[in-house]
């Protein structure tokens, strides 16, 4: 627990947008962190039309308590820009908030930058105490799946 706490305030190994967001959370009191998480939940963009009715083709995040569906697109540009599409029910604002954090932090980054995000990054937002550590598992699962999809998409292309 003590080690985790020490690690939780470190942001220098995170992508810029993620480090900024982590800093914003840490600057707030516990109660206000929940409000910020709620704002991120509300700001999670809707899926673009091309994903209409295609939830079944998206990856389901089993680590979350409520259904969450995830799709990752990687552009063919030199940076291999990553785009995230996440769908989560409004009745599950915590899960939506986690999705919002990841979207805000990672969408538009290069594949290399996304793959470089530490797996324990979800614990860097000071949220474990506000929502209980038990609930953080969903965000860890989401990040793991995003990275796996990015990895799969980039290595697949290299083979071609």
């Amino acid at each position: 627990m003590a080690t985790q706490f020490t690690a939780s305030t470190r942001t220098d190994d995170l992508p810029e947008a993620m480090a900024e967001l982590a800093g914003e959370f840490h600057a707030l009191e516990q109660k206000d962190r929940l409000q910020l998480l709620l704002e991120l939940a509300n700001d999670l963009p809707d899926l673009p039309e091309r994903y209409d009715g295609r939830l079944g083709e998206m990856e389901k995040v089993d680590e979350c308590q409520s259904p969450v569906f995830l799709a990752v697109e990687v552009d063919p540009d030199p940076e291999r820009t990553v785009h995230l599409f996440i769908s989560a029910a409004p009745e599950a604002p915590t899960t939506r908030g986690f999705a919002g954090i990841l979207h805000e932090s990672l969408d538009g980054l290069s594949a290399e930058e996304v793959l470089g995000v530490p797996d324990e990054a979800p614990y860097r937002f000071g949220l474990a105490e506000a929502v209980s550590p038990l609930r953080m598992r969903g965000m860890v699962g989401m990040l793991g799946r995003i990275k796996r999809q990015v990895r799969a998409r980039t290595t697949l292309d290299e083979r071609q």
């Binding site: 929940l34 409000q35 998480l37 709620l38 939940a41 308590q65 409520s66 409004p90 009745e91 599950a92 604002p93 915590t94 899960t95 908030g97 929502v131 209980s132 038990l134 609930r135």
Partner: peptide, 22 residues
């Protein structure tokens, strides 16, 4: 609730949150 933030999205007037875990 199961979801710790659901209360904060809107609740019955006058109601207070009681989180099972926290």
């Amino acid at each position: 609730n199961e979801d710790v933030l659901l209360y904060d999205t809107g609740h019955i007037p006058g109601a207070l949150k009681l989180d099972w875990h926290l």
